[in-house]
Design a protein around this nucleic acid. Structure first.
Length: 607
DNA sequence: CGACTTTGACCTGCGC
DNA sequence: GCGCAGGTCAAAGTCG
């Protein structure tokens, strides 16, 4: 029921002009228009009716809900019935080509009528059979979708457990080397709960009986507590928390498998030992309760660094920043700029922006600190993505060799990745820097898809694939950027959710169809994805753009990324969208009004 | 006039 | 202790 409601509302909202902005001012309600036309005193305008019906049918195909019991009747019968009424009312004006009644109009004998009635009965019977068949098919599809969602959530939890256990195994070595480990990254929830929230992944909660609406509500709540801090902790404390995380992950996995389909189930209520009843905060373990809270607070800051190609001096990440300093860094002719978050008084979040000495088109932005205020959606998308980066860092990997083995051993052993050479979502690379003064994870958004998929990890760093949330980050970076929604060569785009299709490379090979279907279901069922998509498209479709001061954030406006990706066909674009802000604007030029759009701007093809 | 940027001075941590 | 580099402060300048 939730899916039905969302599907029917999203498309008109996302494409408000696709139907109604016709030259003849047809409204969204094609039925009313048709009725008005039939009763119109001017029968000399026969064209609008078929055209509008065509539009209406096209729209209804886009938003067709395979899981609705009512839509089959409503959507299928109404368009067919209406033309007959039109034909009867205005036979001279409307030529639908389906003048069924007039065919028999000259036959008045009883036998002819019986024959006609029999044929109608047969038609009705066949239609009913067909409807029943469609009902069954829809039910099967819904069951498949549920199973895929369940499998996705379970596998995600399994993957997390595996990664964390691996991290726990490797941790003694790494802690001796580094003495600390980054703990949390830009998690959109309170920092004290961030680690456990990696376990309490929305998808896990989803599978644990929460509805997508609950999930979205959870996601929308998240920004108010966004944290953009990478925290580190001493070895023992880290391991203590890590063990808690693993326990929670196992709990979540158990619940997801046991409680799936129980709409009343909540993880909070089922396990009072894990979370406080009031604030959903994770309860400290007995061991942790003996540790003063202050001691659990991280000790040294770490950073999330984002590399992206941009001619602009700063990327837009949804926040407002004020520059408070600039220094010439050693070994780099480009100055390093220091920014402070000004969205709230006293917000401790800071960031550094600097260009690479080797490639001045690459902008490196490093974030540090926790936001103490609500954030716009774009920043939330960023937070979700870096939270995923945090999970990867949390999983720990010290050498490229380990990372390589990790990918090819653990991931390959999971069912989810069993058919893939590398995780399909390896759309970017995250690099852990061991030499930096702070534990830093770098999200490199400058690599092309092919480079990324065939890239050999550098010997001095650890590389990670980024999960799906990464694509939200790309939307959050700035408006004109074309989000590099990369897909591997053997990736087949999923069925478009709610009338939206993903452009990209497609391969007719069915070798990985099972994995692809699973992935497709996961993508389509991911409310984060849906929310980001909706926000992006609604932004493109004419949402007002907030005016920013002359300082503000400046978008990545990189023609290279956009053009390259467009040429490869792996980055989707909105065919129906108005010209995006970067069209006709030379790379590097600033666009007033475009900075710091509150929505992510990942664009997709609506072919 | 407020918000923001610029820029030199100052502070701090770290290695030698 | 000294020097270096990173980071921050704050006064002056700029902009809308």
């Amino acid at each position: 029921m939730e899916k039905q409601g969302r599907r029917h509302h999203i498309i008109p909202k996302l494409f408000p002009h696709s139907v109604s902005d016709c030259s003849f001012n047809a409204s969204d309600d094609g039925l009313v228009d048709a009725t008005n036309n039939t009763s119109s005193s001017n029968p000399s305008i026969p064209i609008p009716i078929p055209i509008k019906q065509l539009f209406r049918q096209t729209k209804e195909i886009k938003v067709m809900d395979f899981f609705s019991d009512n839509n089959i009747m409503n959507d299928d019968e109404e368009p067919r019935r209406q033309p007959q009424q039109d034909c009867n009312n205005n036979p001279p004006a409307v030529n639908t080509g389906l003048n069924l009644l007039t065919l028999n109009s000259g036959i008045s004998s009883t036998s002819a009528s019986d024959i006609h009635q029999n044929s109608n009965n047969k038609l009705m019977t066949s239609l009913q059979v067909e409807l029943e068949r469609l009902h069954e098919e829809n039910g099967e599809l819904q069951t498949m979708l549920d199973q895929m969602t369940k499998s996705y959530s379970q596998l995600q939890a399994q993957l997390l457990i595996t990664m964390q256990k691996q991290a726990q195994i490797r941790e003694p070595i790494k802690c001796e080397a580094n003495g600390m480990l980054a703990r949390q990254f830009m998690d959109p929830r309170p920092s004290t709960a961030a680690a456990i929230d990696h376990v309490r992944d929305p998808s896990v909660a989803y599978s644990s009986g929460k509805t997508p609406a609950d999930h979205e509500a959870f996601s929308s709540f998240a920004p108010s507590n966004l944290n953009i801090e990478v925290m580190s902790m001493e070895r023992d404390q880290y391991q203590r928390r890590l063990q808690t995380n693993i326990n929670c992950a196992e709990e979540a996995l158990d619940r997801s498998s046991q409680c799936l389909g129980s709409p009343n189930y909540t993880s909070k209520s089922s396990d009072p030992n894990l979370f406080d009843d009031d604030n959903d905060e994770p309860k400290r373990s007995t061991d942790q309760e003996q540790v003063p809270v202050a001691d659990q607070i991280p000790f040294r800051k770490a950073r999330v660094s984002v590399r992206a190609r941009s001619e602009a001096p700063m990327i837009s990440d949804g926040c407002q920043w004020r520059k408070y300093g600039q220094k010439m860094a050693k070994g780099n002719p480009c100055p390093r700029a220091y920014y402070r978050c000004t969205m709230a008084i006293g917000c401790p979040v800071r960031k550094q922006v600097q260009r690479l000495a080797e490639d001045k088109t690459i902008l490196v932005t490093s974030y540090e600190g926790n936001h103490s205020h609500p954030l716009p959606p774009a920043a939330t998308a960023m937070a979700n993505t870096t939270s995923a980066a945090a999970a990867m860092l949390l999983s720990g990997s010290t050498t490229s060799k380990e990372a390589h083995q990790y990918h090819h051993h653990h991931l390959a052993n999971s069912r989810f990745f069993s058919n893939s050479q590398l995780p399909f979502f390896a759309s970017s690379m995250a690099t852990l820097s061991a030499s930096a003064p702070f534990p830093t994870i770098t999200l490199d958004l400058t690599q092309s898809p092919m480079q990324q998929f065939h890239r050999i990890p550098p010997p001095s760093s650890s590389t990670f694939p980024l999960p799906l949330h990464y694509h939200q980050l790309m939307g959050g970076l700035g408006h004109p950027i074309q989000a590099p929604v990369y897909f591997p060569p053997n990736y087949k785009a999923p069925p478009p959710p709610a009338g939206v299709s993903l452009g990209g490379q497609r391969n007719t090979s069915t070798h990985d169809s099972g994995m692809i279907e699973t992935v497709s279901a996961a993508i389509a069922s991911d409310p984060n994805f849906t929310a980001a998509l909706a926000a992006a498209i609604s932004t493109i479709m004419g949402a007002p753009r907030p005016h920013q001061g002359h300082q503000g954030g400046i978008n990545i406006n990189d023609g290279d990324i956009a053009n390259n990706n467009a040429a490869r066909g792996v980055v989707a674009s909105t065919n129906n969208s108005p010209p995006s802000a970067n069209i006709g604007v030379p790379p590097g030029s600033l666009q007033p009004g475009s900075p710091q759009l509150p929505q992510s701007c990942t664009t997709f093809s609506t072919n």
